[in-house]
Design a protein around this nucleic acid. Sequence first.
RNA 1: GGGGUCGUGGUGUAGCCUGGUUUAACACAUCGGCCUGUCAAGCCGAAGAGCGCGGGUUCAAAUCCCGUCGACCCCGCCA
Length: 586
Amino acid sequence: MQRTHTCGELNAEKAGERVVLAGWVHHSRHHGGVLFVDLRDRYGRTQVTFRPESKQLFDRAEKLAHEDVIKIEGTVTVRPPEALNPEMPTGDIEVIAETLEILSKAKTPPFVIEDEVNASEETRLRYRYLDLRRPEMRDALLLRSRITQIAREYLTGLGFVDIETATLVRSTPEGARDFLVPSRKHKGKFYALPQSPQIYKQLLMIAGFDRYFQFARCYRDEDLRADRQLEFTQIDIEMSFVDEEDVLSMSEGLIARLIGEIEGVVLPLPLPRISFDDAILRYGTDKPDLRFGLEIADISESATQSGFNVFSSAVEKGGAVRAICAPGGATVSRKEIDELTAKAQKLGAKGLAHAKFENGELTGGVSKFFNENEKNSYLEILKPDNGSLILFVADSADICARVLGALRIELAKRLELIDETKWEAHFIVDFPMFERDEETGRLVARHHPFTQPIAEDIPLLKTDPMAVRARAYDLVLNGEEIAGGSIRTHDPETLRKVLAAVDLSQKSINEKFGFLIEALQFGAPPHGGIAFGYDRMVMLLAGRKSIRDVIAFPKTTAAQSLMDGTPNEVAEEQLAELGIKIIEDK
RNA sequence: GGGGUCGUGGUGUAGCCUGGUUUAACACAUCGGCCUGUCAAGCCGAAGAGCGCGGGUUCAAAUCCCGUCGACCCCGCCA
């Protein structure tokens, strides 16, 4: 080894030892007669001191610049009492340098390697390898590695087998856009990168592996967000001879273990379960953040006789009137209410009604339209505290949910109702099996078509598919969906029925999923599983706002890598070999 | 596909709304000098951008308008 110690491990106990350290020049402080260099590596920082006794050594040390990579040999020395630095783990000592070797000169970096971000994300992404030197970024990746290790230990401890599945797979029409990989040997044909190893893990159950997991890289060619990248990692898990209880208890055990070990917080188990319908009604979303209240209340019934036309007519048309009541919100200004209204309208509401509850009565906003009866009834349902702001949406049930769900989060942020130190996890269960694709009007599987419908709903597949519930579940942590899964259909006939319900002909079923249906006929155990959105989970545990911060080399929201210029054009010969011709945009 | 915020020395920002005394300011980094106990060292000094790119309006554009490119946030999309 070129070094005897890292830059994070020396302390007063090592005083007097001769050591060799190597690392990056973090800072240097020149005092004329004495020169301090903070040497940095991924373990920490150590102060290296150059003294003027050796003129030649000192002269060379003077020329060191930020981020030069050097190796020094020297003696660990306890610092003079007035020079101790209690802020640093190595602050009791310094290494008095005797030799200096410059292993690599560094150009002046485009930004200073400090925790305080003083560069735009654009610049940081352009020089990602420099950004990753920053302790904050380094720690995020170290944490990610630790979480991987804990999850692996947990799962292998429960008898799960780690199996890698193919990443050049068959393209299927369902779901997200596929990334395609052209085949050289079969011109005109393509592999797809997996959106998830879903079918493969089911085949592994049929193969008898019983308990499988994999840290699986998944690829979806869709638009990016703070919590979405083109490629991301799932902890993919599947189990045989299980029902919901087995999968959910394994899952909550994993998340509780992680939060326990990483955050030192005990997550009480079992986790609460909320039905999909209930979540939509009370929180306007299927991934509610329950670190705060602000529950949505349905006041449709009392609004039928409303003196406010907008309310009564919404209910008449088959819609709903719902409200949230924000304690302390009466201080919200006119301008802020206008902003909330704009947000509501962007999400599809025609408007946003409000009122305040002060000194025992509803005042302001639309309250003047309400008759006594409805006022009393609203107060009974909403039970507002003095000084509350009440926001009403009267529209279709869907829009009420979507708008109030968004406003609920917005209000919680504005009124600072979210306790950032809290960890709140729960399951959402009883999902509907299908939903309507709004563009095509087609029925599509909400989770995926391999999900088993609840047994008693199977007869409805033909008659009323929208009423069919699925044996699916999501795990929500602090308002982020971090895992989702289901009990799968292991009976080929039921799978055919589900596929038929999503408008697939027998011919295309055979063509696209024939191999799976065939496999199910060779003795398929009942099975189910779940997949954790690993990047999101790490993001939450690292306290970050974007998964880019926990991925070493992420893409921008325009799906590019600023560092290496991905994606890039390729040579004509490469295309020719693959039988591909580029059609230029007009 | 749509909406929004932003783009000014190497880096981060101010200036832009209300065009012209701005020779484009400040901080960090860089370079030079002083300094033997600092740790975001300090002090003195210097160099460094013509304002993402293209077009337009105007006597005059970093400032106003249009287009375009890029970063970020959101809606759609993400079984």
